[in-house]
Nucleic acid binder design. Sequence first.
DNA 1: ATACCACTTACAGACATCGTAAGGTTTCCT
DNA 2: AGGAAACCTTACGATGTCTGTAAGTGGTAT
Lengths: 225, 225
Amino acid sequence: MLRIVIAEDDIYLREELIHTLKKAGYEAEALTSFENAEEAIARMRPALVILDVNLPGKSGYELCKNLKIKASFPILILTARDTLSDELTALGLGADDFLAKPCRPERLIARAERLLQTYDKQLRALLRVGALSLDVDTYKLVCADKFLILAETEGKIMRMLMESYPDIVSKSDLFSSVWGTEEFIDENILQVNMSRLRKSLSGIGMENIVRNIRGKGYVLEVSGV
Amino acid sequence: MLRIVIAEDDIYLREELIHTLKKAGYEAEALTSFENAEEAIARMRPALVILDVNLPGKSGYELCKNLKIKASFPILILTARDTLSDELTALGLGADDFLAKPCRPERLIARAERLLQTYDKQLRALLRVGALSLDVDTYKLVCADKFLILAETEGKIMRMLMESYPDIVSKSDLFSSVWGTEEFIDENILQVNMSRLRKSLSGIGMENIVRNIRGKGYVLEVSGV
DNA sequence: ATACCACTTACAGACATCGTAAGGTTTCCT
DNA sequence: AGGAAACCTTACGATGTCTGTAAGTGGTAT
């Protein structure tokens, strides 16, 4: 279940929002105090934040801007006034969506759903082993603070190695998953691409993570496991 | 602050884990009951799950497997026995890392940190506007359940449009950010690439989101905002 | 009506990627 | 030690994608 955090000072609206979201199957929580709101929100690890622009103390816009600096969640802005300038300000500050109050529950849910969906979609493409993470659509491989975009063939091999981890992947498995044929016509092509993959990996300081097991195949060896 | 959820039935170890993690600056929470553990964990939206394999009722392996089907968080497996077969089983089920009990706090923290870091890195590359999300490294554009990988020039243009949203981007701005020169030698090249970008976007059902403002430049227009 | 701006399609050069070829190195067994 | 098998590496040409140029069409404002 996804957690949605609400920053809204109007008690009635707040309760209504919580009710609506809970009914839709979300976990809804509201901020109780607006002191250190940024810290408090980050601490709650929300999947989505719904933010009123008129908060006591600090402006909601200010908060939005600060959250967005390191936010890994989408932000939906609520406002009482429905003017174009409000909308532009909100979206200019990095908000992901914008709604005028009052709004119909279905409308809110639809917006929330859309924001969460996109976010999920990007994460679902990630294949992860130890400190490594591979986007199987783009073959972007991330490790710690470095990344690398692999060519298609290298990416397919890496994917297979990660999916099979920590098992050894036989050559015929690699051939069938990368080239779609069990009977490898040319033994060499695999070795060439292994070589290329290793060179690419060493480019971000990942030497020796692809190991050959003589006569068996290849394994991934992520350090420290 | 990042939330780490712990599924461990041994009370002493559980408290120790919580203590260690909190001292390291994480928000640590433990499961109190192991009924509907999957549901409970998902509900907590963890940034990381630490999972003992020996839980009352269900096997930790089983739980791990089920969580991983839709998990958007890494899982670290704990086990009492330090055998290779345990490790292989755990990692084979999609666990992201594996540790034998007892283990030193520094070791645990180091592992946790590494898992969380990778995850963050992938998300930090995302630029988001409304339902759209663009990976600025690979130019993968995700919208709802569809995605598309843009060519470099198209991607740069899209990035500029998203970064400037909801403002209009002037042609000279586009020239300087995409081609690195204010004085556009050939006016046409921008139009050609705009045309290509629009065609690419329409491939995933996103017609009419790039609009031209005569004499001013281009704007992104995401529907429903 | 016309001048300007915007759009589209076709083409060719540049570039990255891929498989082939050929020769070198390591490992294992006798 | 020696030889064969498995594995590794580098170089090269074919292929395909991406990019900018060119040229012509369509739309809009004065």
